[in-house]
Computed example of a mutant assay.
Amino acid sequence: MKVFVVGANGQIGTQLTNLLKQSDDHSVVAMVRKEEQAKKFEEKGIEAKIADLEGSVEDIAEAAKGCDAIVFSAGSGGQTGYDKTLLIDLDGAAKTIEAAEKAGIHRYVMVSSLQAHNRENWSEQIKPYYVAKHYAEKILLQSNLNYTIVRPGRLLNEPSIGKFSLTATPDNFSIPREDVAKVLFEVIDNKNTFKRSFDVVSGEETITDALTYLED
């Protein structure tokens, strides 16, 4: 499967593109905003396309043409204001969903956030971020795409643990970014995750075993 990674220059996206590059079953196209970012990926033998989530749907669709799946791993980041959260995490996601439909791409994987679907569990400190993720999910659910929504817990810049749980607790609600990338890699063609959404944090099981417990 040829996978178009949106947010490829981010921490999770970079690790996912590396996993896809090493795979015998998949190939990868990295979507980036700048020429120098594209050169960085091309030097590693990874195809890159330049497109901007604040640009047009048509440009994104053109960049993704010929791919079989889209993974949306982009985010505005903690250093920007909520205006960028709206433009990237919500409208940017919406544009890639429209672009997938225009390009005839049916498989779509979204990185959301832990409990983004449950308003009562949102942190007041970053409530606008949750609002953006919540409605991005809703737009995806209303599309005709074969989706998977991955809701990772608090993201850590720590080495991979390689063990997972689909249930967060007050004492267990974090996950290394490297492990999020592994989850995304696993779900791309995992039929058990088609038309499903789930939280994921560090735990005690392999991701393959953890995903067997997904319910309709």
Score class of each variant (00 low, 15 high):
residue 7 G to Y: 01
residue 90 L to S: 08
residue 123 S to N: 15
residue 127 K to S: 15
residue 159 P to W: 07
residue 87 L to Q: 13
residue 93 A to K: 01
residue 20 L to P: 09
residue 157 N to E: 13
residue 55 G to I: 05
residue 204 E to C: 12
residue 215 E to A: 14
residue 144 N to K: 08
residue 198 F to P: 12
residue 33 R to F: 03
residue 74 A to S: 14
residue 199 D to T: 09
residue 150 V to D: 11
residue 211 L to T: 14
residue 182 K to H: 06
residue 80 T to S: 14
residue 216 D to T: 13
residue 53 L to T: 09
residue 87 L to K: 11
residue 153 G to Y: 12
residue 33 R to C: 04
residue 189 D to M: 04
residue 172 N to K: 12
residue 1 M to Q: 09
residue 154 R to F: 10
residue 100 A to F: 09
residue 173 F to R: 13
residue 123 S to C: 09
residue 35 E to N: 11
residue 201 V to C: 13
residue 19 L to P: 13
residue 204 E to R: 11
residue 21 K to N: 15
residue 99 A to L: 10
residue 82 Y to I: 11
residue 47 E to Y: 07
residue 119 R to P: 10
residue 196 R to G: 05
residue 57 V to L: 01
residue 171 D to N: 11
residue 176 P to M: 01
residue 52 D to R: 00
residue 206 T to L: 10
residue 34 K to N: 15
residue 75 G to P: 01
residue 78 G to R: 07
residue 88 I to F: 05
residue 175 I to Y: 08
residue 101 E to P: 03
residue 81 G to P: 07
residue 68 D to E: 05
residue 31 M to K: 00
residue 94 A to G: 01
residue 59 D to G: 05
residue 112 S to G: 08
residue 202 S to H: 12
residue 180 V to S: 10
residue 107 R to S: 05
residue 35 E to M: 05
residue 108 Y to P: 00
residue 193 T to E: 15
residue 53 L to Y: 04
residue 9 N to H: 03
residue 194 F to R: 07
residue 90 L to F: 12
residue 34 K to T: 09
residue 177 R to I: 13
residue 54 E to Q: 03
residue 4 F to V: 00
residue 16 L to Q: 05
residue 186 E to S: 08
residue 118 N to Q: 14
residue 148 T to Q: 08
residue 77 G to A: 09
residue 137 E to G: 10
residue 198 F to I: 08
residue 66 G to T: 04
residue 61 A to G: 06
residue 4 F to E: 08
residue 182 K to D: 14
residue 116 A to F: 07
residue 52 D to V: 03
residue 116 A to M: 07
residue 42 E to L: 06
residue 87 L to C: 01
residue 146 N to D: 15
residue 97 I to T: 12
residue 169 T to D: 12
residue 31 M to E: 00
residue 206 T to Y: 12
residue 23 S to V: 03
residue 3 V to C: 04
residue 203 G to K: 14
residue 2 K to H: 13
residue 102 K to A: 14
residue 161 I to T: 15
residue 210 A to F: 11
residue 176 P to E: 10
residue 52 D to W: 02
residue 147 Y to E: 12
residue 191 K to E: 15
residue 201 V to M: 12
residue 212 T to G: 15
residue 125 Q to P: 00
residue 76 S to Y: 07
residue 6 V to Y: 09
residue 47 E to K: 11
residue 23 S to F: 01
residue 31 M to S: 01
residue 117 H to G: 08
residue 151 R to A: 10
residue 62 E to V: 03
residue 71 V to W: 06
residue 213 Y to P: 09
residue 76 S to A: 15
residue 85 T to L: 01
residue 35 E to W: 00
residue 149 I to F: 01
residue 12 I to E: 09
residue 115 Q to L: 02
residue 65 K to Y: 04
residue 210 A to S: 14
residue 143 S to Q: 10
residue 86 L to P: 00
residue 159 P to L: 04
residue 151 R to D: 15
residue 102 K to C: 12
residue 11 Q to V: 03
residue 66 G to I: 06
residue 31 M to P: 00
residue 194 F to W: 14
residue 59 D to V: 01
residue 163 K to Q: 15
residue 206 T to S: 15
residue 76 S to H: 08
residue 90 L to H: 13
residue 91 D to Y: 00
